[in-house]
Write a protein that binds this DNA or RNA. Structure first.
Lengths: 146, 146
DNA sequence: GAAGAAATGCAACTCAGTTGCATTTACTTC
DNA sequence: GAAGTAAATGCAACTGAGTTGCATTTCTTC
């Protein structure tokens, strides 16, 4: 999402040492527009370095826990991972193609995810909000045969 | 969600025969406030009738396909099922407690899910929208020890 | 460079959901 | 009401994503 981000610095800024694998995982997520499944991240990272499946899951957990990365539900059984919202990359809704599984980010301005807007009963403590639009992407829409 | 609903009629209205299992599954979902995991539905239905796990999944798929029921992501690895939105039960956002897994419906008025509001590029075809708030429910909030 | 801690790898496991096929139940048609 | 067909359900085995426990490697710090 951002080539100006220095992922090593980002890792250290949250108290994680920047190992080659962590940096590559975070960079893969960060430099991709849209969000990725673990299998896709694995494939991309493995073009550069060997990495075990379990290590990837552990790194993803760490990055989510440190709030560098957010885990999203696509409505299917596989999580997607994308950079967490920051002042430079504000939080935003996602579009999910129910046909091909593509999941992409929507313009933050189009559907503002501002928790202050919602007047839910304050009995529970809200930590985050996830908005997903399901439908058909441009490609699947124009090739209904696939 | 609604005791006035006649689930047998509802099933037939979408072209499904109303078998005892289907009616019980739909009734279990419909009469519960909030949304349910398959395991919870299984447990409740089994108090009344014997049913196989696979049969439940197949019935759930059918009900979702016929748009009587909607499948929701809780952000964990298990789907939740609730009555689909109708004019009488409008679509609404859900709250998910990240501690105990409880998932409940929010007042439709509090976060209106009106697709017409969002000005996303019309290149893709949007079919539905899912909004989930994650946080701590009242109970987990007041018993942080559990 | 030795000791301890952190990171990674490997094998086996779990859990939700799915598939293929057998069996039962319901629905015609005679 | 029996025979034949289709629909619904059951059962066992499988799949795929993610997890766990423990061994091995790599990094720190003295």
């Amino acid at each position: 999402m951002c080539d100006q981000c220095d992922y090593g610095t980002l890792l250290r800024s949250v108290g994680l040492s920047d190992t080659p694998r962590r940096e590559l995982v975070l960079g893969t997520i960060g430099n991709h527009q849209g969000v990725l499944r673990p299998s896709e991240i694995l494939e991309k990272v493995r073009r550069r370095i060997s990495i075990n499946r379990v290590t990837l899951y552990r790194i993803l957990d760490l990055l989510v826990q440190k709030k560098l990365v957010q885990r999203l539900s696509a409505g299917d059984r596989t999580f997607r991972y994308g950079l967490a919202g920051t002042s430079r990359h504000p939080d935003h809704a996602h579009f999910h193609c129910v046909h091909c599984g593509l999941m992409e980010c929507l313009d933050p301005a189009s559907i503002p995810l501002d928790l202050r807007q919602s007047q839910h009963p304050q009995l529970m403590k809200i930590e985050r909000m996830e908005v997903r639009l399901d439908g058909l992407c441009q490609t699947c829409r124009s090739h209904p045969d696939v």
